[in-house]
Computed example of a mutant assay.
Amino acid sequence: MPKNKLVVQQSEQLVNQFKEEMAEEFGMYRSAAESEAITPKIIKEQKNKKNK
């Protein structure tokens, strides 16, 4: 059996869920919807700073 091979198919989903939960606990996680809403705002702020 190769090293680091996923034996259980659902394990990848479980690991990703665990990562999200840990990031959320440390205040580092944002959902995809939040990120999509925030990104245009950040881009607009950066453009305004460059124009000043």
Rank of each mutant, 00 (worst) to 15 (best):
E12F: 02
I38T: 07
E12D: 09
Q46S: 14
V15R: 10
E45C: 12
E12G: 06
Q13H: 15
E20T: 03
Q10R: 13
M28F: 14
E25I: 03
P40N: 09
Q46T: 14
M22C: 08
K19R: 10
E34D: 08
I38L: 14
A33N: 02
K5T: 09
E21N: 14
N48W: 07
Y29E: 03
T39P: 02
K19E: 00
Q17D: 05
N16T: 01
P2S: 05
E25T: 10
A37H: 04
E24D: 14
K49Y: 12
E36L: 07
L6Y: 05
K47A: 13
Q10D: 14
E24A: 15
E20R: 11
N16H: 00
I42D: 07
L6M: 07
Q17V: 01
L6P: 03
E45Y: 11
Q17G: 02
K41Q: 14
E21P: 00
K5V: 14
N4R: 08
N16R: 01
E24G: 06
M28C: 15
P40L: 08
Y29G: 00
E34P: 03
Y29F: 14
Y29Q: 06
V15D: 01
K44P: 01
K19A: 03
T39S: 01
E25G: 10
V15E: 05
V15S: 08
T39E: 08
L6S: 06
M28I: 15
V8S: 05
V15H: 07
K3N: 06
Q9T: 13
E34F: 00
K50S: 14
F26S: 08
A37Q: 12
M1W: 10
S11L: 13
K52T: 13
E20M: 07
L6V: 02
M22A: 09
A33L: 00
K5H: 09
M22V: 11
E12H: 07
T39L: 10
N4M: 11
Q46P: 00
E45S: 13
K44H: 04
N16S: 00
